[in-house]
Amino acid sequence: MPTVNYVSFDGQSTQLELAEGMTIMQGAVMNGVEGIEGECSGSCACATCHCYVDDAWLAKLPEMSENEDEMLDDTASERKPNSRLSCQIKATAELDGIVIHMPEEQE
């Protein structure tokens, strides 16, 4: 199972193994990781699962959809070049070890 490293805004790290195909957002919500809310349950209709993907992993992610790009314009924390919605990133063997940083706030 792929491992995801969630890093909170204050620097605390939580490492979780996720079932292949589960989204980064689902893993966080199901395991009580603070900093990712996922109010729309992963339908890409809000930006409460905004995260910053560690630069070393950006090239391995699927291309951002137009809808995700639009949702990222409404984030509570600063949108950065490595901003993504964690509901749009699925855990895969290729992403084993990915590092996800949480923004300061989601709402």
Results as ranks from 00 to 15, higher is better:
68 E>T: 11
103 P>R: 12
9 F>M: 03
51 C>S: 13
23 T>H: 13
60 K>Y: 00
53 V>P: 06
64 M>R: 15
106 Q>R: 02
58 L>Y: 02
105 E>C: 08
60 K>L: 13
3 T>Y: 01
74 D>W: 10
9 F>I: 00
98 I>Y: 01
53 V>H: 09
40 C>L: 01
50 H>V: 04
80 K>L: 15
103 P>W: 02
93 A>G: 13
42 G>Q: 05
97 G>Q: 07
86 S>T: 15
45 A>D: 10
95 L>P: 08
75 T>H: 01
94 E>Q: 14
98 I>M: 15
57 W>G: 07
49 C>V: 13
96 D>T: 08
98 I>G: 12
48 T>W: 06
46 C>K: 02
45 A>E: 05
80 K>T: 13
96 D>F: 01
55 D>G: 05
94 E>C: 02
71 M>R: 05
29 V>W: 01
100 I>P: 03
58 L>A: 08
11 G>A: 12
78 E>S: 04
40 C>V: 05
75 T>Q: 03
12 Q>A: 14
58 L>V: 09
22 M>L: 10
5 N>Q: 12
35 G>T: 07
89 I>M: 03
13 S>W: 00
47 A>W: 08
76 A>F: 11
19 A>P: 05
94 E>K: 13
96 D>C: 06
62 P>W: 06
18 L>P: 09
34 E>Y: 12
58 L>H: 11
74 D>E: 03
40 C>R: 13
97 G>D: 06
102 M>A: 08
80 K>W: 05
28 A>M: 04
13 S>R: 14
77 S>W: 03
10 D>F: 11
27 G>F: 04
24 I>F: 14
106 Q>L: 12
73 D>K: 07
97 G>S: 12
93 A>Y: 03
16 L>H: 11
6 Y>V: 02
27 G>C: 00
98 I>H: 03
69 D>Y: 13
1 M>H: 00
82 N>Q: 11
97 G>C: 04
87 C>R: 08
20 E>I: 10
41 S>G: 13
9 F>Q: 01
88 Q>D: 02
103 P>A: 08
36 I>W: 02
43 S>M: 09
58 L>F: 08
91 A>T: 07
71 M>G: 08
1 M>G: 14
87 C>K: 03
48 T>M: 12
8 S>D: 13
57 W>D: 09
80 K>E: 15
39 E>K: 12
86 S>C: 10
83 S>T: 09
31 N>M: 12
30 M>L: 14
79 R>M: 07
30 M>E: 14
22 M>H: 12
10 D>E: 15
56 A>D: 15
23 T>M: 11
91 A>I: 09
19 A>H: 03
46 C>D: 07
23 T>I: 08
43 S>L: 02
20 E>W: 01
87 C>P: 05
88 Q>L: 04
1 M>F: 08
38 G>A: 06
71 M>H: 02
92 T>Y: 01
52 Y>C: 04
13 S>F: 00
38 G>N: 07
53 V>S: 11
62 P>K: 14
30 M>R: 11
106 Q>M: 09
46 C>N: 08
42 G>E: 00
87 C>E: 12
32 G>N: 15
43 S>N: 15
15 Q>H: 00
42 G>S: 03
57 W>Y: 12
5 N>L: 07
58 L>N: 09
60 K>E: 09
43 S>C: 06
98 I>N: 01
26 Q>F: 00
73 D>Q: 14
61 L>F: 04
6 Y>R: 11
62 P>C: 02
